[in-house]
Structures are given as structure tokens and as C-alpha cells.
Nucleic acid binder design. Structure first.
Lengths: 116, 116
DNA sequence: AGTTGACCCCTAGCGTCACAAGGTATAGCG
DNA sequence: CGCTATACCTTGTGACGCTAGGGGTCAACT
């Protein structure tokens, strides 16, 4: 994470980010990192030591399913959402929204700008 | 935390919540818990084992200052913001907003409702 | 008088998780 | 041959929210 975003704020929200990325179609770990960087214009730039264990954890939890392939002589492990993963993505999105609104209410920042 | 808000999502954001509460004037630990519960209609209901260590941590970090008093025969430790605490509150609020917008961009939820 | 519940403080230890730091291997370019 | 980009992995550490206890005061009810 760069740009004044300190490290640990991610805690507990990483799963949603990963599920949201994979929701758009199967992705391998390295590509997930790039996609996160792309969508956030560099604001979220996670090290491999963060995302690989996280993907394994999500697979162990039954939310992701992986399959190996070979592209240009390089091994790739691609992840896709399981049925439970799709459900979890919806649920975690809901939780995130509730959480964000709640925090907003407490810290009492100015009205939230509507997304473009 | 109740209402579908799982525990660990707080990670890294608790400091901001506490600073935001104390920003409105000196508060003691127990009162902070109640105020959080009040402002969020019960959505954020933290155990004492969470907030007392957190307040100590913030005091050690120089963001809060505490003083003991006695009310109705009960000891109270009241916390107030230091200069650094005020600065940190502003900074963390900024970080939170940036973080929330960034996550929002990734998970691609519908446009954020403007706060009432 | 005893018990319950609200108020008010504290700590030790646990589990989780993001991260740093290291490792492996291939492909392509200078 | 080194260097960079791609692509995967693991071990260890630190941070921190929470569980589960420990204090103690006071009012109200039994």
C-alpha cells in the first residue's frame, strides 16, 4: 500500500478484495496483484507474501477453487469462485457497506461524495 | 459487534473511532463504549478487553492524555486529545476516507448513498 | 443481610492475519 | 552471462482485537 495508506488497515477486508477480483473471471495470483494495482491506480499494491497465503486460505475455506495451467513455459495457478465463494462475496460486500456506513456515522465526516 | 459485523474488520480502524469519540470532549473508557454503542445504535458494541488496552496504547503513543478523578465514589480515568492526537485524528480520518473510496472502487458496489 | 446488576478499572494469553524476507524457476533481452 | 519480468512458494514476526478472567463501588431488590 502506498500513498498514505498504512499497512494494517487491510485487516479483515482483504478477502472481499480478492473475491471481488476473481468474481470478474478466473485469475492467477500474480494477475490479482496487478489487477488490484490497476483498479486503484497504485493505491493498493500488495506484496506476494500477502496474497498467496490469502488465496490458499480462501481455497481451504472452500470459497475459491484452483487449477494449474502452463502459459509460455510458466506454471500458473488460476483461481475461480466456488458456489460458496459467490455467496461469500455477496455477503462480504454487504458487511463492508454496513461497516463503512457505521464508521462514517461515528467519525462524522462530511457527506460522502457520490461515486462517479 | 453485532448485526452481521464480524469481529476483525475493526483491525486498524479502532484508533480512529476512539480518537473521534474523545474529539468531542474528554471521556472515560466505559463512557467511550457506551458512546460508540449509542452512535451506532448497537452495531459497534466493544468489550472492555478491547477498549482499555487500546486507550493505553494511544496514550503511550502520545495521542491521548489521561487523568484520574472520582465520581460517586468510583474511580474514573478520563482521556483527552493531545496536540498530536488532534493531528492524528485528522490524518486518520483522511486515511479512512481514501481507504473506503479505494475499496469501493475495487468491489464496485453501487453508488454510495449520500449521508443524511 | 445477601444478591444482583450497573458502573468502572485492569491484565495475561490466544488466535488471526498482513507482511517482510527469503527461496525456486522460466523467458527474454542486453 | 547478468538483469528484469513473470510466477509460484514458505517461515517467521509483530500487531492487535478479543476471551476470560481479576479488581472494586454503589443502589435496588429480596
Amino acid at each position: 500500500m502506498v500513498d498514505g495508506m498504512k499497512a494494517d488497515i487491510l485487516k479483515g477486508h482483504l478477502d472481499l478484495l480478492l473475491l471481488a477480483i476473481v468474481e470478474g473471471g478466473p485469475q492467477h495470483g500474480y494477475a490479482v496483484i496487478e489487477e488490484l494495482r490497476r483498479r486503484t491506480e497504485g493505491a493498493i499494491d500488495l506484496p506476494e507474501g500477502t496474497i498467496y497465503p490469502a488465496l490458499h486460505r480462501l481455497e481451504r475455506a472452500g470459497l475459491l477453487r484452483s487449477s494449474w495451467s502452463e502459459v509460455n513455459g510458466r506454471r500458473r495457478r488460476s483461481y475461480s469462485l466456488t458456489t460458496g465463494g459467490k455467496k461469500a462475496a455477496r455477503e462480504k460486500r454487504r458487511e463492508w457497506t454496513a461497516f463503512a456506513l457505521t464508521v462514517q456515522r461515528v467519525v462524522g465526516a462530511p457527506a460522502w461524495p457520490t461515486m462517479a
